[in-house]
């Protein structure tokens, strides 16, 4: 299953020209407000007709200006979760969830499973106006899934929620990503959401795609990482929990070597998504001795740009924030072997 988009649209204030592919998994459409993210997903959902281009979902043309194809939203099989939930106010939660059943019979038998997955059981007889923001979004997600979609679009689903509600809904989204075999297009301007959920990132700027690719690749790219925000540059490394040591530290195996983490509630065998921020890495030409830092991994410099040094750590890429003076003093050029002293490691997901 995959989505392929290549559209152009002009209206006052924005000249949209975007092309990208979204494979299975979560593809984050990321960029500042007004860069054309919502216009793009509305075009994909069939709620707005672009001037020209092509939108193909799993080999099926949804829109093709050359072939004069423009399927109405009803025929596109795209589930949408909007920022404002858009639940029908005159219906109960149950009636909202059953609304698509008449037209999309395929998903009707999943009713119980989806109600259970999103813990909607206690809400079924309530009306949308009596729900909290998080409950509303969970209902909207359930309703979209029950429309038997081939693609799920989530347009800033958390933007209207406060931090506590965001934390409440995030685990459901992670579960969705891991349990539902659907491409998910996730529109967001929040770096935290993208880091936690996305597998693929499409960076948008002023109506154009600045870059698109796997999240791990973008995070470790010294040119692109600053677009996510300077503080967020770094690496996303996956590892497997090996064992809990006698002093409580947890040993995690990664392709670059073992990492020791404190305060981690994880079981052996569990896969983890770990974040190492660029300003948490110190570089050393020699193997350092007498340091309080526990995690020192051998690395190779692969690129240097503007205060950021890209490293190869095992089979993964990472970024280190280093001043231009240090780059010069240490002689950090592509190919230089060095040691990465990692001050701290954060979890990107539980």
């Amino acid at each position: 299953m995959s989505l392929s988009v290549d559209i152009r649209h002009q209206f006052p204030g924005l000249d949209l020209n975007v092309a990208f592919e979204a494979p299975t998994g979560v593809t984050a459409l990321f960029g500042p407000s007004g860069c054309g993210k919502s216009t793009t997903v509305n075009a994909i959902a069939g709620l707005m007709r672009p001037d020209s281009g092509r939108i193909v979902l799993d080999g099926r043309a949804l829109y093709d200006s050359d072939r004069r194809i423009d399927l109405p939203p009803q025929a596109r099989r795209i589930g949408c979760v909007f920022q404002d939930a858009r639940l029908f106010p005159h219906m109960t939660v149950a009636a909202n969830l059953r609304y698509p059943a008449r037209f999309r019979k395929g998903a009707a038998r999943d009713f119980d499973r989806i109600v259970e997955m999103l813990a909607l059981g206690p809400l079924l007889n309530r009306r949308p106006s009596t729900l909290s923001g998080g409950e509303r979004q969970r209902t909207a997600i359930g309703r979209a899934l029950l429309s038997d979609p081939q693609l799920l679009i989530m347009d800033e689903p958390l933007a209207a929620l406060d931090d506590a509600r965001k934390e409440e809904i995030m685990p459901w989204l992670e579960r969705l990503r891991d349990e539902v075999q659907l491409p998910i297009l996730y529109v967001s301007h929040s770096v935290a959401e993208v880091l936690r959920l996305a597998t693929t990132v499409v960076l948008m700027q002023k109506g154009r795609v600045a870059h698109s690719g796997p999240l791990t690749q973008i995070l470790a790219d010294p040119e692109l990482a600053p677009q996510l925000g300077a503080r967020e540059a770094g690496a996303l490394i996956t590892g497997t929990v090996e064992a809990r040591e006698a002093d409580g530290m947890v040993r995690v195996a990664t392709s670059a070597g073992p990492l020791l983490l404190a305060d981690l509630d994880a079981q052996p065998g569990q896969m983890l998504r770990l974040r190492i921020l660029a300003h948490e890495i110190i570089l050393s030409r020699e193997a350092p001795v007498g340091l309080s830092a526990l995690n020192v991994l051998p690395a190779t410099v692969t690129a240097v740009s503007d205060g950021l040094v890209q490293l190869k750590l095992g089979d993964q890429k990472a970024l280190a924030q280093v001043t231009p003076r240090s780059v010069e003093v240490l002689g950090l050029t592509p190919g230089t072997p060095c040691f990465a002293v990692i001050k701290s490691v954060a979890m990107a997901r539980s």
């Binding site: 959902a45 069939g46 709620l47 109405p72 939203p73 009803q74 596109r76 099989r77 795209i78 589930g79 949408c80 909007f82 404002d84 858009r86 029908f88 106010p89 609304y99 698509p100 008449r102 037209f103 999309r104 309703r143 979209a144 429309s147």
Partner: peptide, 11 residues
């Protein structure tokens, strides 16, 4: 937008 939402659900 509510009518649009209904359209995406296949109605």
């Amino acid at each position: 937008k509510l009518e649009q939402a209904a359209a995406t659900l296949g109605a």
